[in-house]
Design a protein around this nucleic acid. Structure first.
Length: 566
DNA sequence: CCCATGACGAG
DNA sequence: AGCTCGTCATGGGT
């Protein structure tokens, strides 16, 4: 009998939500109305349940999906309590204690203590307490949720943790369903629930991105680094000598004693002695003087080389690129204030010079797509402004905006960006007033967000993400409602693309805010290039249901990332 | 040792 | 310009 058969016998319906916890000895399953402990290989459990199409609920993809993904299991629909906890409660962390406490209306528990010693028997006692609902949740003397909830305890009793996951999931879904759906006349599940699914899928995708990495051609990286930095230093002393030589190239062009070029304060003095009195030494401030001063020019060149040497140099290559040529970093599906994906190891800020080194492996190509003008289009959807939505039907949204404002396209673009970023100074003044007249609903939406941000308090994005805004953070709030909603759309798109790639034997290798990079077999290039806009259309059909706004993606196929750049 | 700040890469 | 991130550096505090 398969796991699917066993679950069916116990009354679990096709497509049901089933909690999954991987214990040390057994796998714990639980659902609304039942539970099951299986002393079996988790891979067999998940594969055996596939015919039932369960929506797996787990405390976090990192805890539960990662070990399965590491063994090659392709997971499909899920509910990630950590990811949804971030969404619905605006949590900045996603450990079980924090997620559970938020659902129970308790203050945030102290952070988990590092190390494997936590949890264990003590945590199990607390689970006993918890089972008696009347007794209330376990608390420390300060009234906060007990710190003994820290990681690892579920390994000893997976079924009970699975049962608890079912309760937390139900609470999260109930909260999401209680939010007003911002769409007009949309059928199907509420937007906030759809967003929860997409956020959960993104957390799963983050685990896979972390596992698979970004394909890099090591010899290309090495060549690029050698051009700027010379050969890799043999030892510390060698590295110091090379750095000193680079410094000397700049210092000899400036009068006076040498300074530490890595110290902005000392560089400011250095520039002052050379006749450049500046409030700071940022490159855009130095740029105008580079044409007349070889010394300034040398300093700017030094900065670029120094950036490469420190952040993207030999040690970065050693640390972040595996023997398989994959650049790996840690991924988070919804980090930071507005819920964007984040990645370490320079994956989100790889300098353009290094992008030719991102290369498909033999027999494969890269397929790149980025969303065009995504933030103003998102603003049109989330604000429900009819005029801006009409403009967002066009391939180039700024053309009709310029017509409505009776100004040039560049001015229209600057004005729209200024409105979304909360610009306070500069030249967009007149255009901003025209923007107010032409698109009053969109501008009021932004102003309302800013007003909430100034007071401080809670704000929700279009998809239901709770944003916690400290008082005075008006500009942040103004931007976060747009940036956050754009992140939600992006992740929903990415999740759809991920699904479609299974049949093509391809994978997403990079997510970059509004850009997806895929690696697929050469034979699947055309299909993947078609998948990206198709997935965008189907995602937008529910995300922007009832709105005429169109989302557009620019797609290119190439061997390297640089060549796939529009 | 942590923490603020400057600087800079990207979207 | 205005927003968001991660990373490395200095320089101030313990």
């Amino acid at each position: 009998m398969t796991v699917a058969d066993e679950l069916t016998l116990r009354g679990v319906a096709d497509g049901a939500t089933v909690a999954l916890v991987l214990g040390r000895q057994a796998v714990g399953l639980a659902w609304d109305g039942g539970e099951l402990e299986l002393a079996a290989d988790p891979v067999d459990v998940v594969r055996g349940a596939r015919a039932l199409h369960p929506r797996w609920t787990w405390w976090s993809a990192r805890e539960t999906a990662a070990p399965l993904a590491a063994r090659g299991v392709h997971l499909r629909t899920c509910w990630d309590l950590g990811a949804v906890g971030r969404l619905v409660h605006g949590l900045r962390r996603d450990d079980p204690a924090a997620v559970w406490a938020a659902g129970a209306g308790l203050p945030e528990p102290p952070p988990e203590r590092p190390g494997p010693s936590a949890g264990g028997a003590q945590a199990l006692d607390l689970l006993d307490l918890l089972d008696g609902e009347d007794a209330g949740p376990p608390r420390d003397t300060d009234g906060r949720l007990s710190r003994a909830w820290s990681g690892g305890a579920w390994r000893e009793d997976p079924v009970r943790w699975a049962a608890l996951a079912v309760r937390v999931q139900a609470d999260q879904e109930r909260r999401l369903r209680s939010l007003p759906d911002p769409r007009r006349g949309a059928g199907g599940p509420p937007l906030a629930v759809l967003t929860a699914w997409a956020e959960s899928a993104a957390a799963l995708l983050a685990v896979e991105l972390e596992r698979d990495g970004l394909p890099l051609d090591r010899s290309v990286v090495t060549g690029l680094l050698e051009d700027v930095l010379g050969p890799p230093p043999a030892d510390e002393a060698d590295a110091a000598a090379l750095a000193a030589a680079r410094d000397a190239q700049v210092l000899r062009l400036f009068p006076g004693p040498p300074v530490d070029l890595r110290s902005p304060l000392q560089v400011k003095d250095l520039l002052g002695r050379a006749g450049f009195v500046l409030p700071d030494t940022r490159s855009w401030r130095l740029e105008p003087h580079a044409r007349t001063s070889p010394a300034v020019q040398a300093l700017l060149r030094w900065r670029k080389a120094e950036r490469l040497a420190t952040t993207y140099g030999w040690s970065w290559l050693e640390r972040s690129v595996g023997a398989d040529g994959r650049l790996r970093g840690s991924w988070r599906a919804a980090d930071g204030a507005s819920g964007r994906m984040t990645a370490s190891s320079g994956l989100h800020n790889l300098p353009a010079e290094l992008r030719p080194a991102v290369r498909a492996e033999p027999g494969h190509v890269l397929v790149r797509a980025d969303l065009g003008q995504v933030e103003p289009r998102v603003l049109a959807v989330v604000s429900g402004d009819p005029g801006l939505a009409r403009a967002a039907r066009e391939d180039d949204l700024y053309a009709p905006v310029a017509a409505a404002l009776r100004c040039g396209r560049p001015t229209a673009k600057v004005a729209v960006l200024a409105a979304m970023y909360g610009q306070t100074s500069g030249t967009a003044g007149a255009a901003l007033r025209d923007l107010d007249r032409a698109y009053p609903t969109a501008m009021a939406y932004l102003r309302d967000a800013e007003a909430t941000g100034l007071r401080g308090g809670a704000l929700r994005t279009y998809g239901g993400r709770q944003l916690v805004v400290p008082p005075g953070a008006g500009r942040f709030a103004r931007n976060a409602v747009v940036q956050g909603a754009a992140a939600e759309l992006f992740k929903a798109w990415a999740a759809t693309v991920r699904d479609g790639l299974v049949a093509l034997d391809g994978s997403i290798v990079l997510c970059l805010h509004d850009e997806l990079l895929l690696q697929v077999p050469v034979a699947a290039a055309d299909a993947a290039a078609a998948l990206l806009p198709d997935a965008l259309r189907s995602t937008a059909s529910w995300w922007a249901a009832g709105s005429p706004v169109r989302f557009v993606a620019d797609v290119r196929v190439a061997a390297t990332w640089a060549d796939a750049k529009g």
